[in-house]
Design a protein around this nucleic acid. Sequence first.
RNA 1: GCGCCAGUAGCUCAGUUGGAUAGAGCAUGUGACUUCUAAUCACAGGGCCGAGGGUUCGAAUCCUUCCUGGCGCGCCA
Length: 582
Amino acid sequence: MKDYVSEQLLQLIEELKNQEVLPADLTPRFTVERTKDKSHGDFATNLALTLAKPAKANPRQIAEKIVALLPQDGAIERVEIAGPGFINFFLDESWLARQVSAALADPQLGVPITKRPKTVVIDYSSPNLAKEMHVGHLRSTIIGDAVARTLEFLGHKVIRQNHVGDWGTQFGMLLALMEQLRQTGREISMELADLENFYRQAKQQFDDSPDFATRSRQLVVELQSGDKHCLALWQEFLNISLSHCQKIYDRLGVGLTPEAIYGESAYNADLPLVVSDLEKTGLLTEDQGAKCVFLDEFKGQDDTPLPMIVQKKDGGYLYSTTDLAALRYRQNQLKADRILYFVDVRQSHHFRHLFAVARKAEFLAATTEVEHMGFGTVMGDDGKPFKTRSGSVAKLADLVDEAEKRARLLVAEKNPDMAASELDEIGRIVGIASIKYADLGKNRSSDYLFSFDNMISFEGDTGPYMLYAYTRVASIFRKAEIDEKNLSGDIILGEEIERELANRQIQFAEILNRVAERGTPHLLCGYLYELASTFSSFYKNCPVLSAETEESRNSRLQLCLLTARILKQGLALLGIGTLERM
RNA sequence: GCGCCAGUAGCUCAGUUGGAUAGAGCAUGUGACUUCUAAUCACAGGGCCGAGGGUUCGAAUCCUUCCUGGCGCGCCA
């Protein structure tokens, strides 16, 4: 609708140019926005205000000219000029009602499939397989997942890439410990059940025992040269670690599968080629024995050029090299039109550098968009990165356990007679929803404070509130005992709150497009919360099943149905499941 | 030292890229359950948008100088 109004205004500007009210070379910047205040209509534009200066006229006079030129339109009931020269648009009620009917008839709920589908590669989650997944992986995993789902819903082809850390020197000490345990006849898979502890043991031995450290380094070299024994140990380790990750993904309802795994080691063979190709394009410089790329835009202290080192003086490669290889693979093999990285915002400098080098080296097509979708740190009550009470990094699995436990407790409090199995199920869904909603609801790029108390408080803007809102709609249909497929009749927007609800409902598409464009699921959370809260208010004020007339009852049932569908779909795009009762 | 990000109600956070009277939730206070789930709803109080200066019809938003906090900055990832 916003786009539609903008379109008309653009035509109108041309008309004004023909009339020589405006200079011909002018391309005005203006906005069409939803209003905050109902008295300002449903939409408003500042066009007349921005035109005042170039037209050398009073903004209100220009506004009048604009209004006079606006075509008669079924969607707009009336137009008003207000304040210093804003033009306010009031939506036609029957038009709004028809939009609701159309959305109900549409499996996409009124959200158009994109006319220009893109292949979008999304790099997210990407844990280090040497350790267990911890709280630091939460945001990348669930924000990336939500954006992936949203892009798919809009009709794009999404390729998920889980760029796991499965290579590097730390694997030497892990393999050394595996080897040692095997010699003493211990069952390795058992020992690896607690990855975190395994890593700690290996690290400790590495620090304490020179023999162990030597063996570790030796194993790294053997692994890199493709030694069979080493590769087998390494593969065994990876399998176990990956299955830990998959377990977390499944619990969290994250749409990552083994198919998405394409780790650092996948690029090993490519690394020398990256370096030689950089050399061919003349970008490579040797500096103090290391192979570097220097770009003029990247300066360090005292204006000294800042290199991107792609090969160390000992011949080893670095993460920059791997990232370049990955970027090229995504461009050439995966045919990406757009590449998104959901990685800690602290790496933003690295990514700027990486993208610039990749462009210069033509590893990326000029038309390919690449964006670092950085996210902030999860903080504890003390304002420092979130840790457990004992001061160690919080394992994701423990976090999920805790959330489920707390959620179950509160659900049990509300439903003293509920069967244990149902409590488990509901507690699980509510717990996960709480964690995910609390995280996804915050602006991606800033740090946020993690608090179980806030997110499982069950009051206000929380995951549980969203699920509760959904169950209330669901219960209406249970009670009514009607098949939603048989609902028909016109939508009647008699009450102000009904109008408001309809207005929200038809906004879904606009929100999803913005989420997809900016990689910001918190906009969807905010929208769904407003929808749920508008619905709660409607639910209070407008009896549905006992509505005064049959027409009103039918209309309200349809408003309920669309609310339910948008809530369910919207939450699904966030990776949050719904419940029919709770 | 250089660079990036942040500073909005007691707390946690929004603020549609410069728009109309800066908004939510929690917490506090008041009212509403014989009526579709009160995990709810309605209402109230609460603000020098870190500070100063500038740009203009109009600034939380843009520019500038400071203050405070966080994070980066050549062979880790």
